[in-house]
Design a protein around this nucleic acid. Structure first.
Lengths: 114, 114
DNA sequence: TCATTATTTCGATAATACTAGAAATACGGT
DNA sequence: ACCGTATTTCTAGTATTATCGAAATAATGA
């Protein structure tokens, strides 16, 4: 699967309001993550529908699941989002080789303030 | 329309291999842009299909069209991509207020090397 | 083992998206 | 006015996606 296809799949996964909301929750939850049940409380949709969305997010690797007893902890995979934005910024929005770049802004990955 | 919905629509527009390819072409074409016909030569799809994709990209403001005589010049709207990545980086991936951020990387908009 | 809670899978329906041929429109040149 | 080129709109078939109730599975504790 090409880089373009993989990126398109991931963008598509985020290209749904419900899933983007879920992903946003998970990113904000940080390393602690969030259980499927807790997510369901927030987004207020039937479990079966939620499960379907979670599966898609997991399929494209944007979300990882870890079973803890009977509950499932979900976490955003920052490295994968990193790859997505990296594609947009580098592969896609990189300066073209003929130096036609005149956008004024660019996206760059920077180290977190640690 | 909320910021989340708008962003989801834009991600959805890019979440299709053909459209992502088109968008990539346009970004690389820079300020000069690219005509619909030229895009069609590259991506090799029927005009009606291409027109449909271009319309969607325009609807979400990722692409602007400018009529020059009988041909249509299309250009990527970097400011809008900027807003999309900005949402992901700030709204979505921003450090949560409780300081749980521990990702190691972050995306930041930086000035282009002018 | 039984009940309970958490989550998924199944199955079905409705909605949306993708694709593309054919006809229509818009423009510039003759 | 007519022709050719560029692009869109119309129309429709097919495919994919979203939704959700009900049944199934998994894990824990009594």
């Amino acid at each position: 699967m090409s880089n373009l296809e993989k990126t398109a799949d991931r963008l598509n996964a985020l290209g749904n309001p419900t899933r983007l909301q879920i992903y946003r929750l998970l990113v904000r939850a940080g390393a602690e993550g969030m259980s499927v049940g807790r997510i369901q409380e927030v987004v207020s949709i039937p479990g079966s529908t939620l499960s379907h969305h979670m599966k898609l997010l997991e399929t494209v690797d944007l979300v990882a699941k870890e079973k803890q007893g009977t509950t499932l902890i979900c976490r955003a995979r920052y490295d994968v989002m990193d790859a997505v934005i990296g594609y947009l910024a580098d592969e896609c929005c990189a300066d073209s080789s003929d130096g036609r770049s005149d956008r004024g802004v660019q996206w760059r990955r920077v180290a977190a303030n640690t």
